[in-house]
Amino acid sequence: MRGFLFCMFESCADPSSLTGLAWFACYLTNGKHLLFYQSFGTVLGLLALAAPLALLFGFAGALAKRSQIPGLRQIGQVYVAMVRGIPDVVFFLFVPLLIDQGIEVVRHYSLCESTGPIYQGNDFVVCDAAKMPLSSAEPWVHSLYGFALALAAYAIVFGAFAANTLDGALSAVPTAQLETARAYGMNARQSFVRIQLPQMWIYALPGLANLWQILIKATPLLFLLGIEDIVYWARELGGTKGSRFAYPHPDWRIYYFAALLVFYMIMTWGSEKVFNRLQVRMSVGQATLSGKGAAL
């Protein structure tokens, strides 16, 4: 570790004098690479936040879709149908823009002293106070805001898929199980919470596991939303670097993308292991898997 730090801070001062391992050690620890490593955190952070949020949206969507209240049911149906029917990429571009401009329009009318027209020719113009975040905000605030918008897009899109999976899983719980709950005096809420919900997971798990894998694989879309994710940095770092740069090298994109490949393989392979274990644990004693017994 000491040697590593030594290398980072002192001998790296003149990269052109370095060769072999020392060169690589310095190259791989320059400021640009540290940003690359940080961007893995961005991706993992997105996954960690998007998954529970999408599940939340999914539950809301599934419950709305199954609701007895006509208006709510239609909202649920439209939500699921719309997101499923529109290509993901279009939605990913549309949602953040919609939220961003929506917030700014609202702020424009509530915060600006003189409210001129927002759409001036080609331009979308709100007053300085209505900007979100303010132009004067620190760059990290802008990054965080961009990240939050992307997160919202992921939650909405994957929430719709999750809503469908959860809706299907809720329907897959055998009616006999719910009828029995009713026969023992449970009301609709009790039967839902005590019987349907816990039994639903075993049916939802394969679909949710699948969604999780798709979510992992969809993280490079962050790049499309202008967030500097691992794909951005891999492409940036891998590109041919001339003598203008301290560490000139030919086109190394293939190595960087191979590193991403390994990262994604480990992520999906690891999650598959976890989900398989979860599936085994959840199906302990459950008749639903063995296909016999009480569920039939």
Binding site: N30, G31, K32, L34, E236, G239, G242, R244, F245
Partner: peptide, 22 residues
């Protein structure tokens, strides 16, 4: 006044990301 300046940062020598990531 704060002004946000857009650039591509991928077209040396006009604009690019240097070794420090700036």
């Amino acid at each position: 006044d704060t002004v946000r300046m857009g650039t591509e940062a991928a077209y040396p020598p006009y604009n690019f990301v240097n070794d420090n990531g700036d």
